[in-house]
């Protein structure tokens, strides 16, 4: 062949670039997720001690200089022995699940309304959803203590309206935690729902009406199933962080509010039991990763069908 072979360097460079671009998220996950998780796992298997850090190394030298691996399952066994941790986990899952359902019930109509709105109205409504993020999360949650406390804004308003004759005790109860979580995480529900609903083609609803659906039937048979990916994404974005939520139960919850984030914090900071706390953190991760894997599995099967 007399024609010069095409230079292979260009496609190879671009494919190397592509591989690098694809590698970045994996490197990120490796560095900031897998590595810390391994450290946590390591701590959970170490023996506790008094000192800084409050645990002994897994691998150490004996007095006679030989390498020795010391594994301790005290943290993990403590986790199973004491009902506190199981109850805290169940409490967290319950509060997170209820909050997720509340967010969905509140967020769906809001997302639907925004997706139906046109032009500047839609932009303004979307801005309003994102607006709270301009203030610190901590300050926003703290502000709720002022609203919810016995002599707070809400009780003053209800008393003034004559709806109640005695102030309600809302602050430092589970109700306050629900309010706090729903308030804080609602945007994470609305935005993916909005993204799913906004893509919905209006002619599909007309087609449903043409084939005999009343508006609510068209909603159930067309809108809802087509927005399901948004429902799932929004629910995961609310549920997963809500399970591990610490600030909201700490500031708004009461002594009865049993959530795993608070327990975790107590074990780390107050009790200084790092192996137990690390075991708890690892267990929580497993509980949270399972639904994600399940979701991915279902989605992949659906795409294959």
């Amino acid at each position: 062949m007399s024609a010069p072979a095409p230079a292979p360097s260009a496609p190879r460079a671009s494919s190397a670039g592509r591989r690098l671009a694809l590698a970045i998220p994996y490197v990120w996950l490796l560095l900031f997720f897998l590595l810390p998780f391994l450290i946590v796992l390591k701590i959970s298997l170490s023996e506790g001690t008094l000192g800084a850090p409050p645990y002994l190394p897994l691998l150490g030298r004996d007095a006679d200089g030989a390498w020795r691996l010391t594994l301790s399952f005290a943290g993990w066994s403590h986790l199973l022995d004491d009902d506190l941790y199981r109850d805290a986990l169940i409490g967290s899952l319950r509060i997170a699940a209820v909050s997720t359902v509340l967010c969905l019930l509140l967020g769906y109509p809001m997302a639907y309304g925004i997706a139906r709105a046109r032009g500047t109205r839609r932009t303004i409504l979307l801005m309003l959803v994102v607006l709270p993020f301009w203030t610190s999360f901590l300050i926003r949650v703290y502000a709720w203590t002022g609203i919810l406390r016995t002599n707070g804004v809400l009780n003053a308003l209800l008393l003034w309206l004559g709806l109640i004759d005695r102030p309600l005790a809302i602050l430092n109860t589970d109700v306050a935690v629900y309010i706090g979580i729903v308030y804080s995480y609602l945007p994470f529900m609305i935005l993916p729902l909005y993204a799913a609903l906004e893509r919905l083609d209006d002619t599909l609803l007309e087609a449903a009406a043409d084939l005999g659906c009343r508006p609510w039937q068209a909603f159930l048979r067309v809108t809802l199933p087509l927005s399901l990916p948004g429902v799932i994404a929004g629910s995961m974005l609310v549920f997963i962080p809500a399970v591990g939520e610490f600030v909201i139960p700490e500031l708004l919850g009461g002594p009865d509010t049993l959530m795993i984030g608070k327990v975790l914090w107590t074990e780390f900071a107050a009790n200084n039991d790092w192996p137990l706390a690390a075991a708890l953190a690892a267990a929580l991760l497993v509980v949270l990763v399972l639904p994600i894997l399940l979701f991915q599995h279902v989605r992949r099967r659906e795409e294959g069908a």
């Binding site: 599909l204 043409d210 087509l226």
Partner: peptide
């Protein structure tokens, strides 16, 4: 209303439910 009419329509975009 459309759902009660003895009429069906074939849409230009077909509007098949995805």
């Amino acid at each position: 209303p459309p759902h009660a009419r003895p009429v069906n329509m074939m849409f230009q975009s077909y509007a098949l439910f995805p």
